[in-house]
């Protein structure tokens, strides 16, 4: 497809769905479905705001959009008055994975807290068990990573996860998944470690510059 009729953008209000004002609505729907199916795991449970400043949608069209997104476990909402989210995202930034653009989280993520960002994520604190970080790019934790981390969530297999203490419940890079060994007596890591995909396996080694 030559042109992008549909785009997801990260804004202060979270993810926003932008629609080409000139395109045929059927093309929009087709492209939306195609885009979502390429990276379907990423979208599960995500809520997207419909941006209508350039293209106003009829209720019938909105229903169709909602239907497509529903297939991928997503929710669509109208532009809200206010959104509370810990993962604040920079204005007007394309969702295309942009690993040089990082979200800095200056706190510890506790159980039940979740950060979701299309670029890379840097946590200045710990990621506790029960917390979750999902990033399109790399994940760097300046502390202990004990929760779930998913780097390269939109398919980037060369994304990495680095932590001062890498003890995740589960580690995902692109579509690769690994989990902590059931054997709890394993020695604790001494110093920072890096996780990356090698030969179709997530491997962990000590990180030294």
């Amino acid at each position: 497809m030559a042109r992008d009729y549909v785009a997801f953008k990260g804004t202060k209000q979270g993810l926003v769905l932008w629609l080409d004002p000139q395109a045929e609505f059927s093309d929009i729907v087709n492209q939306l479905r195609e885009k979502l199916s390429r990276t379907k795991d990423f979208w599960q449970g995500v809520t997207v705001t419909l941006k209508e400043s350039q293209r106003k949608c009829r209720p019938e069209e909105k229903r169709q959009l909602e239907e497509v997104m529903g297939e991928f476990g997503m929710a669509l909402r109208e532009e809200p008055e206010e959104v509370v989210s810990i993962g604040k995202v920079q204005e007007d930034q394309s969702l295309m994975v942009d690993r040089d653009n990082a979200l800095i989280v200056r706190r510890t993520l506790r159980s039940g807290q979740r950060v979701h960002y299309p670029g890379s994520v840097v946590i200045l604190g710990d990621v506790n068990p029960g917390a979750e970080v999902v990033a399109g790019g790399d994940i760097i934790v300046l502390g202990a990573l004990r929760g779930v981390a998913h780097a390269g969530a939109m398919g980037e297999e060369d994304a990495v996860v680095v932590a001062f203490r890498l003890q995740p419940t589960q580690l995902r890079i692109a579509h690769f998944i690994s989990r902590a060994p059931d054997d709890a007596d394993l020695p604790e890591p001494q110093g920072p470690e890096i996780a990356q995909v090698r030969n179709n396996l997530i491997t962990i080694q000590s990180y030294s510059t």
């Binding site: 506790r110 159980s111 039940g112 068990p129 029960g130």
Partner: peptide, 11 residues
């Protein structure tokens, strides 16, 4: 684990 969740909610 639950205490951790509560601390987050309190914050």
């Amino acid at each position: 684990r639950d205490a951790d969740r509560i601390i987050g909610l309190l914050e």
